[in-house]
């Protein structure tokens, strides 16, 4: 998304051997163990916040390459299975490492954003993604800046798509956000600012007006 180099899949953080595996998977998917590739990507996404934000790109490319080469979907199947496995234990993940939890949410949202079926979001992921975001909007999570940041990032990226496929759950999510914004006194001012931005963002049709943009970002940008 915000990257300029098209071929940059942010795989530098992998060890050389794995980098090779990934490179081969991108070019010649049938010559490698795609399940292993999927595992490598999922594992890295859960550890590496930077990677989790962009992992959808590499996944997308591998999926395309596999389809092209032998019309297969081994990689995608494994990827989704892993995502689902982690999903079922997400509360444990969250309890044991907030960072990993945030990485997970970032990753699943990124996959949701990049992998499409017939140009439409994968229906199977809609509710799970909502479940994750709703979890981030619970009162205890709103106290965590990390989680709020993650929530905001995801809404920026896929909020409009999600609302299109299921508006009702988006309403549900925003009830929580309003509640948090208004009623939860312990929320820090930064988190509150982000929540307010989200409320305006959605109200404006998933866009910020230029004045709103100035208000929210003038301090940050140089």
């Amino acid at each position: 998304m915000e990257m300029s180099a098209k071929e940059d899949y942010k795989i530098q953080s992998f060890d050389p051997e794995t980098q090779n595996l990934l490179k081969t998977a991108l070019k010649e998917p049938s010559s490698v163990d795609l399940e292993k590739v999927a595992d490598v990507i999922v594992d890295q996404s859960l550890k590496d916040q930077v990677f989790s934000k962009e992992a959808g790109r590499i996944c997308y490319t591998i999926v395309q390459a596999e389809v092209k080469q032998n019309n297969g979907s081994v990689f995608r199947r494994r990827l989704l299975t892993r995502l689902q496995q982690e999903f079922t234990v997400r509360e444990e993940i969250r309890a044991h490492s907030l960072q990993e939890w945030v990485c997970y949410v970032t990753f699943i949202c990124n996959i949701f954003d990049y992998l499409k079926v017939n140009n439409m979001p994968m229906v199977a992921l809609v509710h799970p993604v909502y479940d994750c975001l709703l979890r981030l909007a619970q009162p205890d999570a709103l106290l965590n800046e990390e989680e709020v940041n993650c929530l905001v990032l995801q809404l920026h990226r896929i909020g409009d798509q999600l609302e299109k496929v299921n508006g009702q759950r988006m309403d549900e999510l925003f009830f929580l956000l309003r509640d948090g914004f208004l009623l939860q006194e312990s929320i820090g001012s930064m988190a509150r600012l982000l929540l307010l931005e989200m409320l305006e963002f959605r109200a404006g049709g998933w866009k910020l007006s230029s004045t709103a943009n100035k208000y929210y970002y003038s301090e940050l940008s140089d």
Binding site: R77, M122, V123, V126
Partner: peptide
């Protein structure tokens, strides 16, 4: 749970619960 169009437990379509199969069925 991910079957669209209804909130209630639904018929036997989309019964497969693993995401990979769901996506493949959709396709």
């Amino acid at each position: 749970f991910t079957t669209p169009e209804s909130d209630g437990p639904l018929s036997r379509c989309g019964r497969q619960s693993d995401w990979g199969s769901q996506v493949e069925n959709e396709e």
